[in-house]
């Protein structure tokens, strides 16, 4: 009985908190339904009188939104796959092996995140144009992966650290080689960390604008953030389109999260060590 009351209290708290959390997003949704292209409103109500799906129709029929969506999905998928593949292996070595340069390497990964990104743009541009990577997804994917990897590696390493090495040791006794132990024992146990790595890598490329803006100049190649940003110009933004785009852009993230969320539970229990 006490437990049930507790559950409902927590549910109530979370519901109120969630409402507060999504209120600003509802505002954006409200703007996307308006036809008068005004950004601000002065009431707490979300949906105003002159609402309609005009902006959504416009977004899909009057702009290159679908091309941007396709481009973004391609880039983000590549970054996610690269991120998961590289981070899971690299972090495993960092967690399980003790070798020279390990600590330095881990620290060096962190240092790449420390430099203010605004100052990197000019040298990035010089470098990429010398390498001929302007207007190509290759340059973009490399940069996105390199920005997402440090966190993913650290995060995966932290998770591996919580998995007892005894598991692999016993697997090796049963005849697995170290690689098999990694693939067959450790990776399946690490799904929560893999989910976070995947989500993070995906988001790092899905919503990135600044680097994309210097690399992609051909409108055919635009990713979603670049496309959305083209609805904005100083003092004359197409707010309706922008907001509609923003709402649509968040849908794939939500779908990805929902489909990955079931892996956010792990089979790891203390029993697997003792047993």
């Amino acid at each position: 009985m006490r437990k049930q009351i507790e559950t409902w209290l927590i549910f109530l708290f979370l519901s109120i908190f969630t409402l507060g959390t999504i209120y600003p997003v509802l505002n954006i949704f409200g703007v996307s339904l308006r036809e008068d292209n005004a950004f601000q409103t002065r009431s707490l109500a979300v949906i105003s009188e002159n609402s309609g799906l005009y902006n959504y129709v416009q977004l899909f029929t009057g702009t290159d939104f679908l091309i941007w969506l396709k481009n973004s999905l391609l880039v983000s998928a590549a970054v996610t796959i690269l991120g998961v593949a590289l981070a899971s292996t690299c972090a495993y070595a960092l967690s399980r092996y003790r070798f020279k340069g390990r600590n330095l390497g881990m620290m060096a990964l962190l240092t790449t995140q420390m430099f203010p990104a605004t100052m990197l743009l000019l040298p990035f541009f010089i470098l990429l144009s010398k390498l001929g990577l302007i207007n190509s997804y290759l340059g973009l994917v490399i940069i996105y992966s390199s920005t997402a990897l440090p966190f993913c590696i650290w995060q995966m390493k932290g998770f591996y650290d919580t998995i007892p090495p005894a598991l692999e040791e016993s697997a090796c006794l049963d005849g697995c080689n170290p690689l098999q132990a990694f693939y067959k024992i450790i990776l399946p146990l690490s799904t929560p960390a893999l989910v976070i790595t995947a989500l993070f890598s995906f988001m790092a490329s899905w919503s990135e604008y600044v680097v994309a803006a210097i690399i992609l100049q051909d409108p055919e190649l635009y990713t979603l953030p670049l496309g959305l940003k083209s609805f904005q110009s100083s003092l004359a933004t197409e707010w309706g389109l922008y907001a509609a785009g923003a709402v649509v852009v968040s849908i794939p993230v939500v779908i990805l999260f929902i489909s990955l969320a079931r892996f956010l539970v792990s089979g790891l229990t203390l029993g697997s060590v003792k047993g």
């Binding site: 969630t18 904005q232 993230v253 999260f257 969320a261």
Partner: peptide
């Protein structure tokens, strides 16, 4: 799912 929405929406507009 609702709680991750602030992360999903493009930062500029939010």
């Amino acid at each position: 799912t609702a709680l991750i929405i602030p992360w999903a929406v493009p930062q500029y507009i939010s």
